[in-house]
Computed example of a mutant assay.
Amino acid sequence: MRRALCVGIDLYPFGALRGCVSDAERLATLLAKHQDGTPNFECKRIVAPNGGGTDVVTRVKLKQAVEQLFKDKAEVALLHFSGHGTENNLGGYLVTQDATTYDEGLSMNDVLKMANDSKADEVVVLLDCCHSGHMGNVPVINNNATMLREGVSIITASRGDQLSVEVGGGGLFTSLVVDALEGGAADLLGNVTIPAIYAKVEAALGAWDQRPLFKSHVSKVIAIRRCAAPISIAILRELPALFPLPAEDFPLSPEYEETHPDKEESKTKIFFKLQNLSRVHLVVPVKAKHMYDAAVQSKACRLTAAGRYYWRLAKDGRI
């Protein structure tokens, strides 16, 4: 039970935007399935493209949709909003098409309350709008503290006092999130998590750009999407067999190298696995530039710090 609500508003009577609908459509399409095609989120779209449609995304309509997203039991409930955002002395707002002065749209404080009250095990909020950093703040004037119940994670495109940028026909923030979900933030098991998505987005934005914010209160990190793993998980599970002790080197010899005259089939099969582990930086040659050199020169290889981390996961049966 995974639900996602993707909202994109381009058509505003004031300051029309260009990429918000495409942001919502891209994210919903991506979240609907894992990379191998298996189902992931059941996605609902609410969009308002320029020049089309009789439906208007009003404050009431948006609030009802967000309330419906969060009210029922689910493994994950995810909200993505791309559109205008604004602020006043009471906090931030997701601007709707019927916005007026003093009634700009759906209050981020209301979204926070619905997220905190949600029956979903995990709640994820992704906001690509100006002043989105207000999301998650305690609804008290001039209070920047954050109060989230366990299981809630928020990533915003910018700080509360910053604007969010559109580039190439879409929001810069959403574009980076899409890249992360397509595999740019996947770990060696192929899992894309919320902290990894934020790390990818944050690293791509410089000191002079909009600064994304990450607010979270979780006791476990879940995969939002699964992508193709860069190495066979079966090989990862063999790490404790290849390295009985994680701090000990694995001695090599020419018999391990496929192209050497003294090769031994059983050893070349092991070396194939070690080379694959080396390609993803879990194993490094000792006193040699390449794994090939380590083998033909009868040197050794050893686990990196990341290799020891995955060794422990495999040892504990968590892979």
Rank of each mutant, 00 (worst) to 15 (best):
P251Q: 03
P195T: 10
L245A: 09
A199P: 12
K61M: 02
N50K: 13
N276K: 07
S278W: 08
I9E: 09
E202K: 13
R302M: 05
P254R: 02
A185K: 01
V138N: 04
N89Y: 13
A4N: 05
L127T: 14
A300I: 00
T86V: 07
A16K: 14
M135A: 14
H34P: 01
G8T: 02
D98C: 03
T38L: 08
K71F: 12
I224V: 15
I233Q: 13
R318T: 09
S107Q: 02
D110Q: 07
I9T: 07
N144W: 10
L277M: 12
L239M: 06
L239T: 06
I155F: 02
C43H: 04
A99P: 00
E182L: 08
L11A: 15
R45D: 00
I155S: 03
G8Q: 06
A120D: 05
G169T: 06
L303V: 04
T101H: 11
A180L: 09
L27T: 13
N142M: 08
S132M: 03
L94K: 00
M135E: 14
D179M: 03
E67C: 07
F214R: 12
A180H: 12
M114S: 10
N276V: 01
Y198T: 02
P261I: 00
I222T: 13
I154D: 10
I270R: 08
P195Q: 10
S219E: 09
S298I: 00
A77S: 15
V152N: 03
C20I: 02
V296T: 12
A24Q: 05
H281S: 14
R302F: 01
N137E: 10
L94C: 01
Q64D: 13
N50D: 11
N191F: 15
I46P: 09
T58E: 12
T156P: 03
G317M: 08
E264R: 11
V192N: 08
V7E: 04
A115S: 08
E122N: 11
A314Q: 04
Y309H: 11
P285A: 08
A288Q: 01
I270E: 14
G133H: 03
A115Q: 04
G171H: 11
